[in-house]
């Protein structure tokens, strides 16, 4: 499953995308994010599955433009730290 968190508004598109097939729930991305945007929990979009994945915090989903400003430019620590290439960042 491709999980897409974030939004598009007049100023651009701000999505963090996770591929649940690639994420093994190791949590490295959670640790490297300076704003604590990510956390580990079972996939809420696949309720019968219980394996934890990296997810974007609910209270961060509509504020990514501002929260992720610290990591403007590339490489993004979350994306770069993932050993499986599961994350994409706007």
């Amino acid at each position: 499953m491709i999980l897409r968190f974030g939004y598009a508004d007049g100023s651009g598109e701000f999505y963090i995308t996770l591929d649940s097939e690639k994420c093994d729930g190791c949590g490295v991305c959670v640790e490297v994010c300076p704003k604590g945007v990510l956390f580990l929990a079972p996939n809420p979009f696949d309720p019968l599955e219980e394996v934890p994945l990296a997810l974007v915090r609910e209270d961060a989903r509509n504020r990514l433009k501002y929260l992720c400003v610290l990591c403007k430019g590339s490489p993004k620590p979350c994306v770069a730290s993932c050993p499986n290439g599961a994350l994409e960042h706007f």
């Binding site: 999980l3 939004y7 979009f45 509509n62």
Partner: peptide, 10 residues
Amino acid sequence: KVLSFLMNDK
């Protein structure tokens, strides 16, 4: 089963 999604709730 969900394969991908996009929402706008802003």
